[in-house]
C-alpha cells in the first residue's frame, strides 16, 4: 500500500512565470527509497521541502499512510530530514544533536540515552558522541545528521543532496551506508539528488524531474534502459542522439541506412537514441539487426572500458567496448561497422 502519496502538488514562487513544482503526483510504497533526480532548478528540493512542511504548497495534497498532512506544521509531521549542509546544531555535541528530536517529542530522559547510543552506533560514531560538530569531518557530520534524523523513528526519511558536500571517494562509501541503514530500518525514504549514479545505485524508484514535472517515475533499470522521454534519455547516462525519419511501423531511415526499431511513433521526423554499451563494432561480415557504417574519430581508454567516438552518415555515435573484445584494438581513422539490436533503439518524435 502507498505510504507516501503526492497529489497534484504545486508550488509557485511569487514573481516567477512558471511554477517551481507543477502538479506532481506519485505513490511510494512502505519501505521504498525514492530518488528525486533532476538538474538544479527542476523543483526536486522544493518538492522535498513541501513534504517536510518547510514550504507550503499552493495546491495539491501530501498523504502519509493515508493521512493528509498538507496543513500540518513541520514539527507535527514526524519526518526525519537530512539537509545538504547537514544543519547540525553547532553549540551541541553529536549526542545532544541526536537527542534533540527525542527531547522535543517528549521521550523520557531514561529512554533517550540508549536510543541516542543506538542511533550513533547505527552510523558507527559511538566513539565521537561527545564531539562538537566543528570537531568532526564532513563524513562524520553527515553520519551524525543521519543518526539525528533517524533517532526519533520518523515515518519518512527525507534527504536533500546528502552527499554533495563530500569528496568523491567518501561519497560512494556513505552512499552505500545510507542505503544499508535505510534497508535495515525499513524507513520509507525520499532522496534528492542531481547525480544519476547516486540515484541509480540507491533508489528503488527514480523520479526524473524537469521544469517542475516528473518526466518518468520508474525503477532505475527502466529509467536507464527505457527512458520515457528525450530529456530522461539525455539526462540519465550517456547516449548519442541521431536525427532520423520514421517511414513505417518499426522502420526508419537514418543517414541513408534503414533501421529497425521495436517501437516507433507515427511516421515523420524523429530522433533515435542508443546507449553506448548496446553498440558493438562488428568484425568482418558479422551481421546485426541494425548496422551503420562509420569511422573511428577518437578512442578513450579508461581501463576496463574503451569508448569509441565514431562518425556515421547519420551523425556521431558513442560505442563502449570491453577491453579484449572485438573492436578494442580499433584506432582513430579506421573504418568500422556499428551494430545494435532493434530492441535497444529508442525513437522519440522530433
Amino acid at each position: 500500500m502507498s505510504h507516501l502519496g503526492l497529489e497534484r502538488l504545486t508550488r509557485r514562487f511569487p514573481g516567477t512565470a512558471t511554477p517551481a513544482v507543477d502538479g506532481i503526483s506519485l505513490d511510494l510504497p512502505q519501505g521504498a527509497l525514492l530518488a528525486l533526480l533532476g538538474p538544479s532548478g527542476c523543483g526536486k528540493t522544493t518538492t522535498l521541502r513541501m513534504i517536510a512542511g518547510l514550504e507550503a504548497p499552493d495546491g495539491g495534497r501530501i498523504l502519509v499512510a493515508g493521512r493528509d498532512v498538507t496543513a500540518l506544521p513541520p514539527h507535527r509531521r514526524n519526518m526525519g530530514v537530512v539537509f545538504q549542509s547537514y544543519a547540525l546544531f553547532p553549540h551541541l555535541t553529536a549526542a545532544r544533536n541526536v537527542a534533540f528530536g527525542l527531547e522535543m517529542r517528549g521521550v523520557p530522559r531514561a529512554e533517550r540515552g540508549p536510543r541516542v547510543a543506538r542511533a550513533l552506533e547505527l552510523v558507527g560514531l559511538e566513539a565521537l558522541a561527545q564531539r562538537k560538530p566543528r570537531q568532526l569531518s564532513g563524513g562524520q557530520q553527515q553520519r551524525v545528521a543521519l543518526a539525528r534524523a533517524l533517532a526519533p523513528q520518523p515515518d519518512l526519511l527525507l534527504l536533500d543532496e546528502p552527499l554533495s558536500a563530500l569528496d568523491a571517494k567518501l561519497r560512494e562509501e556513505v552512499r552505500d551506508e545510507i542505503r544499508a541503514v535505510q534497508q535495515r530500518l525499513g524507513t520509507t525514504t525520499v532522496f534528492v539528488t542531481h547525480d544519476q549514479t547516486e540515484a541509480l545505485a540507491m533508489a528503488d524508484l527514480v523520479a526524473v524531474m524537469n521544469q517542475g514535472r516528473i518526466e518518468q517515475l520508474a525503477t532505475p533499470e527502466e529509467v536507464f534502459e527505457r527512458p520515457a522521454t528525450r530529456f530522461v534519455a539525455t539526462f540519465v547516462g550517456r547516449a548519442a542522439i541521431l536525427g532520423a525519419e520514421v517511414v513505417g511501423e518499426g522502420m526508419l531511415r537514418a543517414g541513408g541506412a534503414t533501421l529497425l526499431a521495436a517501437e516507433t511513433p507515427r511516421p515523420g521526423k524523429a530522433e533515435i537514441f542508443i546507449r553506448p554499451h548496446h553498440i558493438r563494432p562488428l568484425a568482418g561480415d558479422v551481421m546485426a539487426e541494425n548496422v551503420l557504417p562509420g569511422r573511428v574519430l577518437r578512442r578513450v581508454y579508461t581501463g576496463d572500458i574503451i569508448t569509441l567516438d565514431c562518425e556515421t552518415a547519420a551523425g556521431n555515435l558513442l560505442a563502449e567496448v570491453a577491453g579484449g573484445s572485438p573492436g578494442a584494438a580499433l584506432q582513430p581513422g579506421q573504418e568500422v561497422r556499428l551494430g545494435f539490436a532493434a530492441a535497444d533503439l529508442r525513437v522519440f518524435p522530433a
Partner: peptide
C-alpha cells in the same frame, strides 16, 4: 536558517526552536 528548520523537523515548536537553537546561537 536551516538550523531552525532542522529543529522544526525534529519536532520543536517555534518557541522551543527560539529558546533552544536561535537564542544560544
Amino acid at each position: 536558517s536551516r538550523l531552525e528548520e532542522a529543529a522544526a523537523t525534529l519536532g520543536a515548536t517555534r518557541s522551543r526552536t527560539f529558546l533552544r537553537v536561535t537564542l544560544p546561537l
